[in-house]
Design a protein around this nucleic acid. Sequence first.
RNA 1: GGGUAGGUGCCCGAGCGGUUAAAGGGGGAAGACUGUAAAUCUUCUGGCUUACGCCUACGUUGGUUCGAACCCAACCCUGCCCA
Length: 390
Amino acid sequence: MLSVPEQLDILKRGTVTIHSEKELTEKLARGKPLRIKLGVDPTSPDIHLGHAVGLRKLRQFQELGHHIVLIIGDFTAMIGDPSGRSTTRPALTYEDVLSNAKTYTEQAFLVLDRDKTEVVFNGSWFKEMPFMEVIRLNARVTLQQMLQREDFKNRVANGTEVRLHELQYPIMQGWDSVVVRSDVEIGGSDQLFNILVGRDLQKEEGMEPQVCMTLPLLEGLDGVKKMSKSLGNYVGLTDAPKEMFGKLMSIPDELMAKYYLLVLGEVLDTTLHPMEAKKQLAAKCVITYHSEAAAQDCREDWDLRFSKRDLASVELPLLTLSDRRDVLGVVQHAYQSVFDQTLSGGDVRRLIQGGSILLNGEKLTDPKAEPAWESGVVLKLDKKRSVRLA
RNA sequence: GGGUAGGUGCCCGAGCGGUUAAAGGGGGAAGACUGUAAAUCUUCUGGCUUACGCCUACGUUGGUUCGAACCCAACCCUGCCCA
């Protein structure tokens, strides 16, 4: 095991707050593996790069010889974490939650060492919890404390509803810490309050309080809002290589440094040309979650497709024509059959008239035209999608 | 339970009897340009094989009217104040 200062140096990297560093030093100094907790709510089946920021921190702990406890919030997911929310989360069924949990853990192990990770479901203790106990826990938190939270405060101030079950969330997350006897809890910076509640409950139970460690939130592809599935601005860990590569190429330039730090744990080389830096970021990410070969393939594909605009030599999905031979019909059918997207006639018409549709490099601007659809010819649909005629 | 303000398109929000498929913004899409699916600029953004035509849409259900998102009634839902 590395010395305490060496461990601290690694662990502190990229954190927002550590509450407190002194406590963490003391815990590390004992020389015993610490129990590191990360709770995830399986509210959607995908883990994205935003979640991976926390998982990477866990991985660091793991490599330093500490014990990871990954809590699957099967129970808390049904409540929905109100952190940072301006509205109540939609309720999920238990079946959804379970199936999400399954894919969730599989994806988490792309980052974590499976053999050294303890996975627990918090439903295993909450499902059987007597109501008396629930009341007892509730007695430990005051309404005023809850109302100090930005998200609740804002909602109250704006006249947006706050439902009572949402107030239970921090208490439940805190109780998880008591049950798993965590020494350190990791979370996004929006988790600060919830993690601190965990400290309070542990103290109440006569335990040494956990260290609270928060990490920055990763902005999504739009560059402004937190990366999240519901906003659609995420890169999923299981995204296909080309999709992952392409999505990363679409982040704003300003965000690159942060992505380098949080996604790769590296420092951006500012002497690189921005586009080259971004390509490297995208490639490295593909290497992590897929393979070196896939990354190489993505780069080449990207260069051909977007830098040289040489669609003819790119591998494209094949389109088998249906009965309709007019431009509108063929394009609509292409979206449907190849990309599984249903576009209305109006949508397609807009694409055609906007000049997006290219047949072998020639713009098709008449929806009703019936050009000769020769086999092997490239039909470009929009910026990202093209097909080859079968 | 009483009082009061509201429920509009993917979201926020104007409209308050006809010229309203419904201002404006956000989000999304396309084009131009480029160093990329960055940035910037322009355009589009309910559906219908484009149709000054039809259908669907302003919480729900009925009603008044030649005509309703707009007026009336009942109901459902939410906020705020009081209890």
